Simulated assay, not measured.
Amino acid sequence: MDDIKIGEILLPGEESEQERRERRVRSGFWPTFRRAVRQIPFSRDVVAAYFCAVDPKTPTRTRGILLAALAYFVLPLDFIPDMLAGFGFSDDIAVLTAAIAAVSGQIKERHYQKADEAMRDRPNE
């Protein structure tokens, strides 16, 4: 996956697009995360990114970037189908890595605390 494609995926989008993505992310994040957790080496960061994306205190542009990446993550069909063992989440990981790197200063300690709580409350997910 090249930088141009990742850059296109991570466009924050208009407010209506962000709202649509947020609904998709809220409904699909945890089921997708459960399937992918063993393949994502930075799962705590992904969960913190989720909490940052749904936090109304997060700046709009940051929310947009994270919601775009997380929406791509929860989509069942993407560049590499998620069902392919060992490879299915590799494109998702690339997109999530780029998004988290782009907004890393906006993911706050409170998001990591929520991530830790959520991961503790959802063992083996």
Rank of each mutant, 00 (worst) to 15 (best):
M1D: 03
M1H: 14
D2E: 03
D2H: 12
D3E: 14
K5I: 14
K5F: 08
G7P: 06
I9D: 01
L11T: 08
L11C: 07
P12Y: 01
P12T: 03
G13I: 00
G13K: 06
E14G: 10
E17H: 08
Q18W: 00
R20S: 14
E22N: 15
E22P: 13
R23M: 06
R23A: 13
V25I: 03
V25C: 03
V25K: 03
R26V: 09
R26E: 04
S27I: 04
S27C: 15
F29N: 05
F29S: 07
F29G: 05
P31K: 09
P31F: 00
F33M: 05
R34F: 01
R35L: 02
Q39V: 03
Q39M: 08
F42V: 12
R44V: 10
R44C: 09
R44L: 13
D45N: 10
V46F: 01
Y50P: 05
Y50E: 02
C52L: 12
A53E: 00
A53G: 03
V54L: 13
D55Q: 08
D55F: 10
P56Y: 06
P56S: 13
R61S: 15
T62G: 15
R63D: 03
G64S: 09
I65A: 02
I65D: 01
L67A: 05
A68Q: 07
L70T: 02
A71C: 08
Y72L: 03
Y72A: 00
Y72N: 00
F73R: 07
V74F: 04
L77K: 08
D78I: 15
F79T: 14
F79E: 09
F79Y: 13
F79R: 08
I80H: 12
P81M: 05
D82H: 08
M83P: 01
A85K: 10
G86Y: 06
F87E: 10
F87K: 10
G88I: 04
G88Y: 02
G88S: 06
F89S: 08
F89L: 15
F89T: 10
S90L: 14
D91F: 11
D92E: 11
A94F: 01
A94Y: 01
I100P: 00
I100K: 01
V103L: 12
G105A: 05
Q106H: 15
Q106L: 11
K108D: 10
K108G: 13
K108N: 10
Y112R: 09
Y112H: 11
Y112C: 12
Y112G: 10
Y112V: 11
Q113V: 15
Q113E: 07
K114T: 03
A115L: 02
A115R: 00
D116S: 10
E117S: 11
A118P: 05
A118H: 13
R120L: 11
R122C: 07
R122Y: 04
N124C: 07
N124Q: 12
